[in-house]
Design a protein around this nucleic acid. Structure first.
Lengths: 338, 338
DNA sequence: TCAATATGTACAAACGTTTGTGCATTATAT
DNA sequence: ATATAATGCACAAACGTTTGTACATATTGA
């Protein structure tokens, strides 16, 4: 069935050299160990000819290194996280590492289980969008020496590097913008309440409202899902004091809003204004191009990987907690109220 | 720094039993090797207490199994493939396996390189959306005994299991539908020309056209990308004999079409009709809900995983090449021409 | 010419598992 | 009481690498 896998030993036999020498040549340590030029040639030729492919497991077992890092996101079905996964996957590969992707499904128990599984695969580092508000398991791993970088969501009281968007700033700015455009009754549909980004977005929103002298506003919802956006919007539309603008805290929530609007024949921005966190290529081509707070996905991913590898390689790094400014894109979805 | 990793040996010492016994208990082979109840208890307790997590590398090295499969897609940025990746990742996990995801970037050379890397990680199986028209490297791996399943794209002349959409059928049906609605000048914007789905879609399109007595039609483009859709649409719009309908062969291409339409102030379906392969949640909320040929992503993924594991487990399976019927969703994007 | 150094290579242990086999000890049958 | 079978466990090899060290031989310097 399976053709005999060729190993370092076969090459040694074929070249008449020892496996030690073969290993050293193949690992680029020829200079360090002064392997003769001709030997090098012979070995490389043999390796190519035999189609040798090293067994990482053996190497990893010996060295204790796996050249593998893990990425855990709450949901690959959320395009925001899918995009992050794609980017991180590519970045990590540049370092010769491989990424194992896990999906916690917004469930902290699953998150823990995945983490266990991944640990047994000797991952060298972890990039995680933690779900939930428990962090003991992360701290535990961190204390054990596992390099960890949080992205998007993080814990303020935990000394783990993170890179995220300046959620407060984004939420604050757009809220101010809405108010400046005459909106007084603004509803905010939030996601997972205990998550840091959500908390900061909500805080940015309510701070801006309060500073604008508006003390009564509604903050509803509890999940970064289409369904949550849909249901809450349905409810909001039935209120006697219907909001003139909705601030959605994620792309998925926004999609739920739009679905509800469509059902109720509510037009944007004539009947209601809408702005959302997260960008998406399709937003420009919706019935009304949707204003959004675009998170710098690419930068977040790159920086996260950079952080992780600087820990891995023990490179001292000046800072390890960073918030990137979001890019706010105002489009036709916001109406100026006079 | 890193806390001593606890291994099977530590448990053996702690319990006063041998590592053999520990290994057997921990692997659920207690019955098979008649390990005493009390010993089992002791070992399990110790494992829990010491927070033992097995070193897969050592196990894999010994057994030759990695509990890992690989998935290679042409581009994780294409939501169609992202969705497939997400689904497969979840399915595979149910088998206790892990998926390593690779992105070939529609580049056959990269595909080969990734494959090499993955092989050295002793993957037990491969699910791949092959890019390009070369298949020697796949055949080679297949001959070596690596279980492979192709999805979406495949090679007819290669005896490797595949699961894909009935692309011909989908393309044929919608083309007929367009003709029945009075369209005579229909342009098809295609993707990667040598890929099987593309070829079949084009064939379905042209067969339907010819059968309808329309001999002159344009098939343009050469990439499953937004840019390709955009450029080709721009060109099509400048033709003297401007098409009344465009048939886009992927979601990315469709996005390019829409972008071009928007720039040129072309409205769907008043000025032009549009239908595309691939579904996406946002399609319903575009300025005009976009008709599409929805591929059964979830089923494709599930079946592919099922195929792969039936090969892995040597379960005989009745068939191993399957085409699933797509679900065509007609919406307002197609105008009836009188 | 002889010691000292440089050059090229090999030995063997170790990484943490899994597993075929064998050896005690105890229970059962005669 | 003795032969046989069942029970419970351990030895040791093997998986394919990497690497500290040591050992030859060749080269150089005096």
């Amino acid at each position: 069935m399976t053709t005999q896998k060729v190993n370092i030993n076969d090459i040694a036999k074929k070249t008449g050299l020892s496996i030690t020498t073969v290993s050293r040549v193949l690992n680029g340590k020829s200079e360090q160990y002064r392997i003769g030029k001709k030997s090098q040639e012979k070995i490389k030729a043999a390796a190519k000819e035999l189609n040798y492919v090293p067994n990482q497991f053996a190497a990893n077992l010996r060295t204790g290194r796996s050249n593998t890092i893990a990425l855990i996101v709450p949901s690959l079905n959320n395009p925001f996280f899918a995009s992050i996964a794609s980017k991180i996957n590519a970045e990590v590969r540049k370092f010769g590492y491989i990424t194992i992707i896990g999906d916690s499904d917004e469930n902290q128990e699953i998150e823990k289980m995945e983490l266990q599984q991944l640990m047994s695969r000797n991952i060298e580092g972890l990039i995680i969008v933690p779900c939930g508000d428990q962090w003991e398991h992360l701290k535990h791993l961190h204390d054990q020496g596992l390099p960890i970088v949080c992205i998007d969501r993080y814990f303020d009281d935990l000394d783990i590097p993170f890179v995220s968007t300046d959620n407060y700033d984004g939420a604050y700015s757009v809220t101010k913008h809405l108010v400046e455009n005459g909106h007084r009754t603004i509803a905010c549909i939030q996601g997972v309440r205990r998550s840091t980004p959500n908390k900061l977005r909500v805080k940015g929103f309510s701070d801006a409202m309060k500073e604008s002298g508006i003390t009564s506003f509604s903050i509803v919802g509890d999940d970064f899902s289409v369904q949550n956006g849909y249901l809450e919007t349905k409810l909001l539309l039935q209120q006697k004091d219907r909001p003139t603008a909705i601030f959605s805290l994620s792309n998925t929530i926004a999609m739920g809003c739009i679905k509800a609007f469509k059902e109720e024949n509510i037009r944007i921005p004539d009947d209601i204004s809408l702005i959302t966190f997260d960008d998406h290529p399709y937003l420009d081509y919706l019935a009304t191009p949707l204003s959004c707070i675009a998170q710098p996905v690419s930068d977040i991913s790159k920086i996260a990987v950079k952080f992780l590898f600087s820990i891995l390689e023990n490179t001292e790094i000046q800072t390890n907690k960073v918030l990137l400014k979001p890019k706010i894109k105002y489009k036709e979805s916001i109406k100026r109220i006079v």
